[in-house]
């Protein structure tokens, strides 16, 4: 059974990343509302915990993948001229990759 990335797999990625996003959002909201880091030093300390770091990396990865599938869907629905569509998808891809690299430099 060969299923390409464009249809079925994109849908599966969207579903899986949705669950990951929900789980991390719940963690993030509860941490930030019950025990928010008080100052910059506390923030750095919080972010230097390996579990938080790994969680955050997975979260950002899931967020980027989820955004790619979702915004790509909106572009396929509404942007019909081929040149414009390719431009829009390229800009989106560059922006998502850029965001990912930016997060890596912050956490790295």
């Amino acid at each position: 059974m060969s299923r390409q990335a464009s249809g079925f797999r994109a849908w599966v990625y969207q579903r899986i990343t949705a669950v990951l996003l929900l789980l991390f959002f719940v963690y993030l909201l509860s941490t930030l509302s019950f025990a928010p880091p008080a100052d910059f030093v506390a923030w750095v300390e919080w972010l230097s915990q390996p579990l938080v770091r790994i969680g955050l990396l997975i979260f950002v990865g899931a967020l980027l993948l989820h955004s790619w599938v979702g915004v790509r869907d909106a572009i396929i629905d509404y942007v019909h001229p081929l040149g414009l569509r390719i431009t829009a998808l390229t800009l989106l891809a560059l922006w998502l990759i850029g965001t990912g690299l930016w997060v890596l430099t912050i956490l790295g």
Partner: peptide
């Protein structure tokens, strides 16, 4: 079944449904 499912693959035929 397999042919039918293969036909429905891709971003358009089935997966435009939101």
């Amino acid at each position: 079944k397999d042919e039918r499912l293969d036909f429905l693959e891709g971003p358009y035929k089935l997966f435009r449904c939101h």
